[in-house]
């Protein structure tokens, strides 16, 4: 029986999962939209993997990452729940051991990870504002009626250059509208937007970081060739988009799960959980004026987790 490792990355916009074999080769992967329902997305992933992998496997380890990592971890019985920064770094140095910079732009956040000799040594992440991330691109593509998959390709067709203000998405949008009213072709405006996103990223997120080659570009936005080109132009370096750029976080989580279990076998509840029903219930605690929202998670009406209090009265620590 083959041993497999599962990694799941629950992000704000998309939920990603991979199944790896013992040598960290990707057996299968899937990318789904979270659509604001992380529980459903995770169960769908498990269902898909059950169909593709079958029941005749041994689970070596399961890891979760991404902003929904905690909930996903509780649901499926993960061996390790790790933040996405480390997960991305681990996956990057697995495929490209001499990688020194990881650019990762996802749905709601963007980050830069600096690696030296395969070890993450520095990182930065956008803070209060989500300017220049995937969801903004998504929104603009929708507004212009262009499928997001085509968005980047259009940018490459631009013959002239248009400057778009990239500091803030609100300003960027009004700038785009204004330029369109002036009569600039849509390709040029999209190309301008891609450049603005890259400028914003380099000025805000990657500010002061020592960007050295090899540079990897991961996360959903790496699918956008327009942004890829803009990075290449701005950094004057080769930008590598790894084969599994969409699911690098999930791959990292699976690798970390193997490190964690170290051959002990997994806590994973098995593919069968895709038939279980998961519910969450939020109640407001009236113990003090903090009025924390306490999240109860149920599996088939059985309480499996309590989370969200500041004082530890509910969660016991």
């Amino acid at each position: 029986m083959a041993t497999v490792y599962i990694g799941i990355d629950v992000g704000s916009i998309s939920t990603k999962g991979v199944v790896l074999d013992d040598n960290f080769n990707v057996i299968t992967y899937e990318y789904l939209r979270t659509k604001g329902r992380p529980i459903e997305a995770v169960l769908n992933l498990i269902k898909i993997f059950k169909e593709r992998v079958g029941n005749n496997v041994k689970f070596g380890g399961v890891g979760t990452t991404g902003s929904g990592r905690r909930l996903a971890g509780v649901m499926i019985g993960a061996d390790i729940v790790k933040n996405e920064i480390i997960a991305h770094a681990i996956a990057a140095s697995h495929f490209y051991p001499n990688c020194q910079t990881v650019i990762e732009i996802g749905g709601q956040d963007s980050k830069i990870i600096i690696l030296r000799n395969g070890i993450p040594v520095d990182f930065a992440m956008n803070t209060v504002c989500a300017a220049g991330t995937g969801s903004f691109l998504d929104h603009q593509a929708q507004r212009l009626g262009i499928p997001i998959e085509e968005f980047g390709k259009l940018a490459l067709k631009a013959k002239t250059k248009v400057n778009i203000a990239g500091r803030c998405t609100v300003f960027a949008e009004s700038d785009m509208i204004h330029k369109a009213q002036l009569g600039f072709p849509i390709e040029s405006i999209i190309a301008g937007l891609c450049e603005a996103i890259v400028r914003n990223y380099l000025n805000v997120v990657a500010k002061g970081k020592d960007i050295k080659p090899l540079i990897l570009f991961q996360g959903g936005v790496a699918a956008n060739v327009g942004v890829r080109e803009a990075f290449k132009k701005e950094l004057k370096e080769e930008i590598i988009v790894p084969e599994y750029f969409l699911v690098m976080g999930a791959i990292g989580a699976a690798i970390l799960a193997k490190e964690e279990t170290n051959g002990r076998g997994s806590r994973f509840y098995g593919f069968g959980i895709s038939n279980c029903e998961f519910n969450t219930k939020a109640i407001e605690c009236n113990g003090c004026a903090n009025r924390c929202e306490i999240i109860h998670t149920y599996r088939d009406n059985e309480l499996i987790d309590i989370y969200g209090d500041r004082c530890g009265k509910w969660s016991g620590g």
Binding site: S67, K82, I86, I119, F123, M125
Partner: peptide
Amino acid sequence: LTRIEAFLELLKRR
């Protein structure tokens, strides 16, 4: 928590 967890992990690995 995401940021401090990653930061501490990075310090540990260094």
